[in-house]
Design a protein around this nucleic acid. Structure first.
Lengths: 358, 358
DNA sequence: TGCGCTCTCTGAAGCGCTTAAGACATTCTG
DNA sequence: CAGAATGTCTTAAGCGCTTCAGAGAGCGCA
């Protein structure tokens, strides 16, 4: 009964009822100092009586040229995205930051081209867009530019005019590779998430993988491969997972572990992949770190929880999100994008890595 | 340079440039059949040349009374919410469903009152609201009604006029409790997420817990307690976690396990809590299921991954989300809300439960 | 008394778009 | 060949709100 789809009252209805101008009613809601307290009271009371819940958000947005929402563009579906704690944490910090200025998040999940479809972006009701690790040349990025929306990119190549925050992916990868080299390992495997536009899943050469559409993938890979090469280790097998889930990572890692010669160390492009690798090892009765060392990337909470606790490359996800939020607010305030920021990383050695087995 | 904050061109600019009416340009974008192909081509070309990316979403929304977004209201922050895979999966299915009609999701994270603040809801640019397990009497629900927004509630008490989908929480809890009773257990502990408005964290009586602000909490608790009572087991200790993270669950479970007499079985209100409990047990050197049995709720993917794999109550999260999406589309189409749906659950026995220790 | 102020409130011009209704010309129909 | 049907484009009335630029009234102050 409450939901009779009858026309909701408007500002004018309230104005007429009280016998004042439309402006006055608007002021009653938006600028209390512009009218007497008594009149304001009456307006509010009448509004309530009429069932007027306040100015219509859409109309207000049209008039103010401000929506109060930020479009967050993902390269995958919602579930895949949020199964990655690294994203959740980043997003949470971002949300908290922009919330302070009254901005909510509009989620634009990815389609098939490394990001949301262009028309979704063109129709998005948002003041600004945030691109989170989209594929290079994602149509969404073009749409953002065509619309003239301010843009913040996270973990992506630089886009002219956009604010950018990213991670020292390469540095982290180098540290991880070096750590394993120091432990004496010489036979490696690299576990990577989807790289190319066609999600294949399966083995690939480092050269192929270097063409990944995702910057962080490329950087991490380069860090691994170059560091290993410098130590004389080449021809390292790369295995691409067919998706982002831990289960898919387990399968992919299994393939790597069943290879001959079996790697003694696995470099994984994310914690989730590494956790999948741990599962694969367990399944095969391989002791970690006795017979196999595994390192992840991100240091999301599950890394510390894992059994054994995961050696990984920590990035300050919270800070990354907060920073992105600050950049967003800055652009929204009409200020220019500051120079790109690259956040440092740090290798966290836990229990999943050890000396090369004899 | 791309982001010169210069006024974006409008429909009128394009119309003037081509020398046609505003309507024609609008039609070129929205109803191609309303004008000759040649003219349409010219309009589109001119639009492109002028840097016009298509009709402004906000203005369009005002004219069409349709936003193309659905507000998703949470009772917690983004991170806490998405660290729960059960939510991610539900949300993903919901998003996929409404996406088919061009609706995106606007995330409204919770504030301090069991849901998003009312003013965030009043200002949300959305055609419909979805409430996901909000506290009873959350201000957000009132705001939704005041605005006259259609509403879909998930796992919540019935709201007049709203569509509703929920889970057979009580049935699942009953099955879980009975399973443990059948295994001979007599000393139980119940691990619960936040119940009351003041998040305390700590022990509480079943009576207190029964006043939880969250319907699913109440239902599950009732299922546990009543079933145990029927078997003559009363005075079961309930421990409330101080948050939703697994770490907090571990601590709370630890308290329960350190109690005297120590429970031989833990009933947990979610998988995440149960996984925390497993960690607490491990920490104490308690063998599961040898010395302690643990059951969860939801059967999210990590349940099967756990070591030992978790006995839990499965609900079809995907289906729940899809259903909620269908209901949303239905309401948006102007149809009435169908009768509330309660989805069935099923006890999945894995390796975390066993006979009472001798 | 007269002037400038402050305090309240109003008028009216947008914000950028959609869409019903209609004008006009051309093409079909019998 | 008249009249109907069709195709193409325009006119104009909104959608519901914000906000600039006043208009009056009442006030203190010199």
């Amino acid at each position: 009964m409450a939901s009779t789809r009858r026309r909701q009252p408007t500002l004018d209805d309230v104005a007429d009822e009280v016998g004042v101008s439309r402006t006055t009613v608007s002021n009653a809601f938006n600028r209390p100092d512009q009218l007497s307290a008594a009149l304001r009271e009456e307006v509010l009371r009448t509004a309530k009586r009429l069932g007027y819940a306040g100015p219509d958000p859409v109309a207000r947005s049209l008039a103010t040229r401000r929506v109060g929402a930020i479009a967050f563009m993902l390269d995958t579906g919602v579930s895949a995205a949020f199964s990655d704690p690294a994203l959740s944490i980043t997003l949470d910090a971002l949300a908290a930051e922009v919330d302070r200025e009254g901005h909510a998040l509009l989620l634009l999940p990815g389609g098939d081209h490394g990001g949301p479809p262009a028309d979704r972006v063109l129709n998005a009701q948002a003041d600004l867009a945030v691109a989170y690790s989209l594929a290079d040349g994602a149509p969404a990025l073009r749409a953002v530019r065509d619309r003239g929306l301010p843009l913040v990119v996270i973990d992506q190549p630089y886009v002219s005019g956009a604010a950018r925050v990213s991670t020292d992916d390469r540095g982290g990868a180098i540290a991880a590779a070096r750590h394993l080299l120091d432990l004496g390992h010489r036979r490696f495997g690299i576990l990577s998430a989807q790289c190319l536009s066609e999600p294949r899943g399966g083995p690939m050469t480092a050269e192929e993988a270097a063409k990944s559409m995702f910057r962080d993938n490329r950087e991490r890979l380069a860090g691994y491969v170059d560091t290993l090469a410098t130590a004389g280790v080449t021809g390292v097998p790369v295995w691409e997972t067919s998706g982002t889930s831990r289960e898919q990572a387990r399968q992919a890692a299994g393939e790597l572990l069943d290879g001959d010669p079996r790697p003694t160390a696995l470099l994984c492009m994310s914690d989730e992949l590494a956790l999948g690798a741990l599962a694969a090892a367990r399944q095969r009765g391989l002791r970690v770190p006795g017979e196999l060392s595994v390192v992840g990337f991100d240091d999301a909470p599950p890394a510390a929880w894992a059994e054994p606790a995961l050696t990984t490359v920590r990035q300050d996800l919270q800070r990354k999100g907060r920073l992105a939020g600050e950049l967003a607010l800055r652009l929204l305030a009409g200020r220019k994008a500051p120079p790109p920021v690259t956040l440092p990383v740090e290798l966290v050695v836990r229990d999943s890595t050890g000396p090369r087995p004899a």
